[in-house]
Structures are given as structure tokens and as C-alpha cells.
Amino acid sequence: MRWEALGGHYWESEPGAGLAQAVAAAADRLVERAPERMPSVLWWPGPAWAALAWKAALPAGRWAVTPVTGGGPMEPGALRSVAASAALGVTGAAWAAADTGSVALASEPGQGLWPSLLPPSHLILLRAAQVVPTLADGLRVMRSEGGMPPMAKIISGPSSTADIEGQLWVGVHGPGRVGVVVVTGPMPDDGGR
């Protein structure tokens, strides 16, 4: 995948215990720790990853995790401020395209986009079977899944700008650090989306 060439971080893992380790390694790499402040994580990878043991990956002593699982457990508006103050957002993905090094996310019931937008770092969980050869293939996947989601985004690397003297700068509005953990092999609970 071109993902790394675009400045994205990349991990591969088998499902199971190794996956929690990969997520832990990814979180450590993506988040810059400030001294004496536990980094907060907005965990919102959607129903496809409900079986993933995030408590093992992001233990309570090291991370302050706000999980979003199922229908809105929080007060209206709370989610947004959690996203705005999180050090790391974790999401699932809809598909990924190899030729452009892109990962697509769709807002769906149970999956939001704010964790990919507001925190300075963003980690994406992706199944290897979700990777298609070209961007056009990916767009076809999105179209074939019935109605369009209200909002979807295709991410190709970190937020960047060259607006000051044409110099590339990473992380201006969106996340400056993005990573994917690609899970190879079938998921134990994979009903196939």
C-alpha cells in the first residue's frame, strides 16, 4: 500500500492476542505523551470491532479511554467535546484502496467520523479483506452497499498544508499522525460485512 509513502503509519496483525499488542504499539507510536498527563482516547471503531479487547490494548493505568459502543450512552453534545480533547481517535474503516494509499470511513449508525477529525492522532482498524486494488473499486464498494451514508471521507495520509511559502507542513487542522492496523486472516466473529 502507498499509505506509508504518504506519511501514514502501518501495522499488520493476526486476529487474537497479537491484535491487542499491535493496537497498543500503534497507540504508543501515534501519541506524543505529555508528562504527568494521561492521554485520552476516543474509542469508536464501530460494531465490526465489538469483540476487540480494547481494555487489554489500552490499559487503564496508561490511557483514559472513552469507548463508544452501541447507541449513544452519553449526553447530547458530550461526544463532541470528548473528541475535541482526545489525544487519539480510533475508528474502523469502510474500505481501503491500494493504488492511492487511501482508507475510507463512512458515518453510519454506530460509527462516527469525529475521532478521525478532531484529535491530533487517528488510528484506523482495517481488515485485509477490505483492501481493494484501486480507488474506483473502493467507490464501487461504497455504492453497492445501498444508500449513501450522510457523510463519508477518504483519507490519504495526514492533514497537510503548503500554504506558507510552499513548505509542506503536516497536521494543520486534521490529525498530523495517522496509522492503520491491518488485520490479516478472518476475524473470529466475522459475519462478513
Partner: peptide
Amino acid sequence: RLSAYTTLISGPRAPGAEEG
């Protein structure tokens, strides 16, 4: 090959959703 963000908006937030 592609901009960092391609955003596809097809409607306002779904009923019951908090985002959008």
C-alpha cells in the same frame, strides 16, 4: 494521486445520530 481528504456528503445527520 489523491488529496489527503476527500469528503462525500449526501445529506444531513441521520435521525438519532449526534454527528453532522
